[in-house]
Design a protein around this nucleic acid. Structure first.
Length: 610
RNA sequence: GGGGCGGUAGCUCAAUUGGUUAGAGUCCCGGACUGUCGAUCCGGUGGUUGCGGGUUCGAGUCCCGUCCGCCUCGCCA
């Protein structure tokens, strides 16, 4: 830490920070400044202070043998979180070292004390390492919470990640460009945050859900390789890993294929994990979306453990078990199974009943189960209904005596979702997850479109600018919009990178051909007029010489969560929002003055009372 | 919009089946103490049990509503 020493009162002209002094400094005269982390007052005559700054702790001692009565009585009054500066001499501790502190061999014998700012008694002590107060209080007094070493460490990790991003991508020819925060609202995707325009009453800006369109335009502009640490805004409900404003490490590259993007990004991930955690990321394996859904029931599989889903629809069809045959009678009906090694003993009836209830939240009817007996037969649960296929089933999934089987029987989508979620829950419950492991995987070959039964239309699975895989372009352009099967079979040039079951980045090769873009809009039910109105700038740009291009965006918050070892996104954001989108420290959002609204020609509607 | 959990002293928590004056640790205040490092010891202050109703002789406890926080489904890439 370098601090200018000119034009500052001598009292807090620091010579060292609080994690710096060692035995080598013995005899030196030093000045430290910081917060009173704790005090140990032995009465008139001897007072110990642990002084804290960003870097660490140093013990300061006020001793009658070396200090005036005035100094001692001042030290006597010190309390937690007072801001002080101390000058004195470094010496080896009289009372023996404290192995818990990096500076534990020494202490500073105070000769002067300046109380720079007396603190009110804080509602909680940043020095407490256990028994944290509830999160709402931490958020309300965020400045106290952030003083905690653990939070300081996370802030640093986050800084390190953005610094590494800038360094790494700079080395690889990327330039950082800022894109607007006040943007045009576009259809598709999440709900926009809107900002009224004072200069053109009745019109609105939208905050960007991502810099997607601008970064593509930058490619058309010849930027070639673009990087931005970009704030993004989505007005949707929050989750443990989702905030309404979040940050992406956003990138785009020209004249590249999917392989080029993956190579550069993998290098970034390797640099991050290597520099921050000292972990060497091996070549990241690849998996198609189809494989991910078939084997893991989710498009972001956690590969730290196995526990795959097996399709046994063909076997299930041979039974008279109505749950199975009923499901197979549905459109795209399947029967799948998870085999839990040793589950028969560990998973009690109470637990398996709980699973059955739990999967209902994902739309499944329940989760039939049975266990494998010592002779390989199926015992208990639904065993007796599917006895006829027991042998083939056990062989198919490689089940052993003592294993527990969980079945899903429903449409492919519902069955995958329910068993995919159950797979993760069982792994957690049975302690099958090796927390020291890092399992990365690229998921690729996503379908371009998903059909929604309710609205009877297609939606872009990624976003509407994702290109079809190169080998699919002709088939795509030729496809009949009414031919659902063909359309759903078109695979995109998109890719997601997944770490331990969480999506940390996603991107695609973009459409640079306006014929393809027009066709995508047609399929999404965006009329040529609407496309022109909403996206004409992009459509125009694509016609003025757009290079082939593609990119990716990493979720910075999620990256830092992994690197910091937390599962709470609020921990990695200095000033996060609660689940209702509130900042409890500053009390945003809040009502505004009527005159402010009038100036914007905006009026509040009455909120319906429930 | 739906489901679940929680809200008791500044903080972390306890309070039996609905039962007397709602307790403990910590913080804070006062006192003692020269080698602590979660200092120790003695004493003390501190409560609208989130809020509003209801049931009851009696409610922190039961019921209804509401607010706030967390988790989650839908939503979101």
């Amino acid at each position: 830490m370098t601090t200018p020493t000119v034009d500052r009162p001598a009292a807090y002209r620091r010579t060292h920070h609080c994690n710096e002094l060692r035995l080598d400094h013995s005899g030196a005269t030093v000045t430290l400044a910081g917060w009173v982390n704790s005090y140990r007052d032995h009465g008139t005559g001897l007072v110990f202070i642990d002084l804290r700054d960003r870097e660490g702790l140093t013990q300061v001692v006020f001793d009658k043998a070396d200090a005036s009565d005035e100094l001692l009585s001042a030290a006597d009054k010190l309390r937690s979180e007072d801001v002080i500066a101390v000058s004195g001499t470094v010496r080896k501790r009289d009372g023996g070292p404290n192995p818990k502190l990096a500076t534990g061999e020494v202490e500073v014998v105070a000769s002067t004390l300046s109380v720079l700012n007396k603190a009110k008694t804080p509602p909680f002590q940043p020095s407490e390492t256990e028994g944290l107060p509830n999160e709402e209080l931490r958020l309300k007094y965020r400045y106290l919470d952030l003083r905690r070493p653990k939070m300081q460490k996370i802030l640093r990790t986050r800084h390190r990640v953005t610094k590494l991003a800038r360094d790494y991508f700079d080395e690889n020819g990327f330039i950082e460009v800022e894109t607007p925060i006040l943007c045009k609202s576009t259809p598709e995707g999440a709900r926009d945050f809107l900002v009224p325009s004072r200069l053109t009453p009745g019109e609105w800006y939208a905050l960007p859900q991502s810099p997607q369109l601008f970064k593509q335009i930058l490619m058309v502009s010849g930027a070639d390789r673009y990087l931005q640490i970009a704030k993004c805004f989505r007005d949707e409900d929050l989750r443990a890993d989702r905030q309404p404003e979040f940050t992406q490490i956003d990138l785009e590259m020209s004249f590249v294929t999917r392989e080029d993007v993956i190579e550069v990004m993998e290098g970034f991930v390797r640099r991050l994990w290597g520099d921050v955690l000292g972990y060497e990321v091996p070549t990241v394996q690849r998996m198609t979306y189809r494989e991910a859904m078939d084997d893991y029931g989710i498009d972001r599989p956690d590969l730290r453990y196995d526990l795959k889903l097996h399709d046994i629809s063909d076997l299930a069809a041979k039974t008279d078990f109505k749950v199975f045959t009923g499901a197979l009678g549905k459109e795209r009906g399947v029967v799948k199974v998870i085999c839990v090694p040793g589950g028969a003993e560990k998973l009690t009836r109470k637990i398996t009943d709980g699973y059955s209830e739990w999967v209902k939240t994902f739309g499944a009817g329940g989760v039939p189960t049975t266990k494998v007996g010592v002779d390989g037969s199926l015992e208990a649960g639904i065993g007796k209904f599917i006895d006829s296929i027991a042998k083939d089933l056990v062989e198919r999934v490689g089940a052993k005596p003592g294993d527990q089987l969980f079945f899903g029987a429903d449409t492919y989508a519902t069955c995958s979702k329910a068993l995919g979620e159950l797979r993760q829950k069982i792994a957690r419950d049975m302690g099958m997850i090796d927390e020291s492991k890092w399992a990365f995987v690229w998921v690729e070959d996503f379908p371009m479109f998903e059909y929604d039964e309710e609205t009877k239309r297609f939606y872009a699975m990624h976003h509407p600018f994702t290109a079809p895989n190169p080998d699919q372009v002709e088939a795509f352009l030729a496809a009949d919009p009414g031919d659902r099967e063909t359309i759903e079979g078109i695979v995109s040039a998109g890719y997601d990178i997944v770490c331990n079951g969480s999506e940390i980045g996603g991107g695609s090769i973009r459409i640079h051909d306006s014929r393809v873009q027009t066709k995508v809009f047609e399929l999404l039910g965006i009329s040529p007029q609407e496309a022109k109105e909403k996206f004409s700038f992009l459509m125009d740009a694509l016609q003025f010489g757009a290079p082939p291009h593609g990119g990716i965006a990493f979720g910075l918050d999620r990256l830092v969560m992994h690197l910091a070892g937390t599962d709470n996104i609020r921990d990695v954001i200095a000033f996060p929002k609660t689940q209702t989108g509130a900042d409890v420290m500053s009390d945003a959002p809040s009502a505004v003055d009527e005159t402010q609204l009038a100036e914007l020609f905006v009026k509040n509607l009455p909120v319906p009372t429930k």
